[in-house]
Amino acid sequence: MVPMRLVIACAALVGTLGFGSTVQAQDKYPSRPINIIVPGPPGGGTDTIIRHLAEVLEPTLGTKLVIENKPGGGGAIGVTILTQARPDGYTLVFSHNGALTTIQHSLQIPYTLDSYQPIIQIGYGSYIMCVASDFPANTAKEFLDELRSKPGRYTYGNDGVGSTMHLAAEQIFKKFDIKAKPVPFGGAGETARNFLGGHIDIYGGSLPPVIAHVKSGKVKCPLLTSAANNPVVPEASGLKDLGVPELEVGLWWGLIGPKGLPDNVMKTLVTAFTEGAAKPSVREALDRIGAAPTVNGPDEYKAMLARESASLGEAAKAIGLVKK
């Protein structure tokens, strides 16, 4: 008793689908809006930076930059979508380094460093480790000594198992022969809450959640995971001060595209983004989250990805993290 209406509807559907799709040909780039995928939620650090960039870039590029949030899988979902996109320069990803150099060590993902084309790297921040103001150490050296003298006694929060922050910390701890208990949280905000409440001893994560508390004197931050010091938290030492700049792991961002982008597209994007990153509003945005306004072109960017991925891979192996 299949109703006649159903038959008619099905026939109409098949008919509609018969229409072919149109193919557009273009030579001048960009000639239509560019989609930029952010592999994270709206309002996050990465999202904020690209929105500032988009605002200054739209006049230069003469087209709209459409920011598309594709959160999930630690950023892997957004990057995966990109690797399947056509390399015409109209689908790009602006990502933090986590989805590019970290996630592959703990999660089975369908892409590698060679599945996409690095375009430009922008901004360089760092992760930070903080303790309560009554912690028996003030400098980075005292802090590490204290941790070493009491193996397994202290707990440190991080952004999650196999996160960039977690691996960066483990790398440093291994070098200094330290055993501390990692306690993974869902993100820097949750870590900060548990740290401020005294449920864990050491905060590990990005700068923004703790900056205000450093100012109020409730918290002190001895150690950064970058090589250089940071003007936002002058009392914290970078790894250069400790003589181990090679262990540096940063928090940075970059633009990538599908493999095989035409040269003119690459050139346009590199020029435009380099200019954009130098604009005051973008520098301010980076400044506020404690990131330096560094810019690296495609070649240095590619080398940077390879280097960080390799060293974090080793750190992951050392703590017995297996890909699942």
Binding site: R5, I8, A9, A12, L13, T16
Partner: peptide
């Protein structure tokens, strides 16, 4: 277009 098909079909059915 998918929505147009969806709505038309269900309004009809």
């Amino acid at each position: 277009p998918a929505f147009a098909i969806f709505l038309s079909a269900l309004f009809y059915l």
